[in-house]
Design a binder for these strands. Structure first.
Length: 429
RNA sequence: GUGGCUAUGGUGUAAUGGCAGCACAAGAGUUUGUGGAGCUCUUUGUACGGGUUCGAAUCCCGUUAGUCACCCCA
């Protein structure tokens, strides 16, 4: 067989059976934690109106400017985008389905693929999986803290080792303009000390300069005014409460005054969670999020919907699980193996397998092998001790042969007694 | 979007520009209805497209994919 000339698109990979174990483990951990805290699962379409993201995420952000898969539909009337993140669609759904009139807050979680057109590298793909959770209609700081702690709990469940929360508050409409003004003034005065990229950002998105890793900018950044100093009383109190909750729950955090994040909808609390040990940091943060009290309004809502959310990168978590040598719960092998010889027996065996399934007995088989030798070989390779053998003779008599692989003993069992007999033998093992 | 490195059966790996080999895996057989070992046999490859050359897995160019850094982020 020659190799196919088709390959996967860049940055989009097949999730092969052996990797499904990891994806399942992550999904299970996520589901367990969010279910327990009464979050409801929601799925939104993979594709949304392009406008939703340029308005929600922000026209000036990198995600919108260069990373979106955007296309026209056949009639050319609609412009759609493969969703690059999960929060804007959920707020859209919240508004569209009138969730405002339900008891607040609304707590939702999601899991699925997202798309960003970037150059792939460690922990960064063009199609990647994210899980996330949102608490909508809640302004209390407890919501912020709870999301952080749930994400933390998921990472502990997955045995990712030490992780650390980096957290900051970027203020709200009330105090951020003040801060922005002060920062702008400061940065303009130090313009010559900034890298070329940052000089451009002065115009488009000065907040992001704080995030620049260029050495040249570090000096300027370190002396820059910090958003924390400008917080109004409301924001200050809110942030203090978030930190107090974290301390109460003994969740380790670092106050990072330069953390700003790349999406426009954030206000007040922003945070990222990353592995504590330096070597694992290369691929970026494991999860991140923050409060977005203004997003609903940006998307056209009349009412204010205070909310916050978190999203985690599944591939990054899996990479960390692998480097931590994550141990899966022991896989349960099949309990019996069914082997068949001849066409009549083959026909009978399908019905028997279905009986076994209904009796909740896990069964393996190999219809593709005809010789009994090969089938027993497989059973032994799979480590299955109890083998049912059904051949022409047994099929005609309405019996099966039961073989114990360890002792080599076999006995004939009537068709009606199979389930009972297997259960008996499994007990003895 | 810019730059570096990489690409040989399913997997892991060899081959001064000169017959593409090895191991594992897989499949078949080894007195046709009885497993694990051994033995025998078999299938499967130079990512794709050009160029240089008598001759290319090997040198050059392009494409694709992987990987890493920048950028950004989950």
């Amino acid at each position: 067989m020659s190799k196919s000339k088709f390959q996967n698109p860049q940055g989009m990979h097949d999730i092969l059976p052996e990797d499904q174990l990891y994806y399942d483990a992550v999904f299970q951990a996520v589901k367990e934690v969010f279910d327990f805290y009464h979050f409801k699962k929601i799925d939104t379409p993979i594709v949304e109106s392009a406008d939703l993201f340029s308005r929600g995420v922000g026209q000036g952000t990198d995600i919108v400017q260069k990373e979106m898969y955007t296309f026209k539909t056949k009639g050319g009337k609609d412009i759609f985008t493969l969703r690059p993140e999960g929060t804007a669609p959920i707020v859209r759904a919240y508004l569209q389905h009138g969730f405002q009139s339900l008891p607040q807050p609304i707590k939702l979680w999601y899991y699925g693929p997202f798309f960003r057109h970037e150059r792939p590298q460690a922990g960064r793909y063009r199609q990647f999986y994210q899980f996330g959770a949102e608490i909508l209609g809640e302004k209390d700081a407890l919501a912020d803290a709870q999301l952080i702690s749930l994400s933390y709990a998921i990472f502990q469940e997955l045995k990712l080792g030490e992780v650390i929360i980096r957290i900051n508050s970027i203020g709200d409409d009330n105090c951020r303009p003040e801060y922005r003004k002060a920062l702008n003034k400061y940065l303009k005065s130090k313009k010559s000390g900034l890298c070329a990229e940052c000089q451009k950002r002065l115009k488009t998105n000065p907040l992001r300069i704080l995030d620049c890793k260029n050495e040249k900018c570090q000096e300027v950044i370190n002396a820059a005014p910090q958003s924390l100093e400008f917080l109004c009383e409301n924001c200050h109190t809110h942030f203090k409460e978030v930190l107090e909750y974290l301390e109460e729950m003994k969740i380790p955090y670092i106050l990072d005054p330069h953390l700003v994040r790349g999406l426009d909808y954030y206000s007040k609390t922003v945070f990222e969670i990353e592995p504590a040990d330096l070597e694992q940091k290369a691929q970026g943060s494991l999860s991140g999020g923050g409060r977005y009290d203004n997003l609903a309004k940006m998307l056209g809502s009349n009412a204010l919907v205070p909310a916050c959310g978190i999203a985690g990168g599944v591939e990054r978590i899996i990479a960390l699980m692998k480097s931590r040598d994550y141990k899966f719960k022991a896989k349960v092998p099949a309990q019996v193996f069914l082997s068949q010889i001849g066409p009549l027996a083959k026909k009978r065996s399908l019905a028997i397998i279905e009986e076994l399934r209904q009796a909740n007995i896990r069964v393996a088989e190999s219809f593709s092998k005809d010789s009994l030798k090969a089938q027993l070989g497989l059973a032994s390779k799979l480590g299955i001790n109890n083998v049912l053998i059904i051949g022409q003779k047994e099929a005609l008599q309405g019996t099966v042969m039961m073989r114990n692989m360890e002792s080599g003993k076999q006995s004939e069992v009537a068709r009606e007694e199979i389930i009972k007999e297997i259960k008996q033998r499994l007990k003895e093992d």
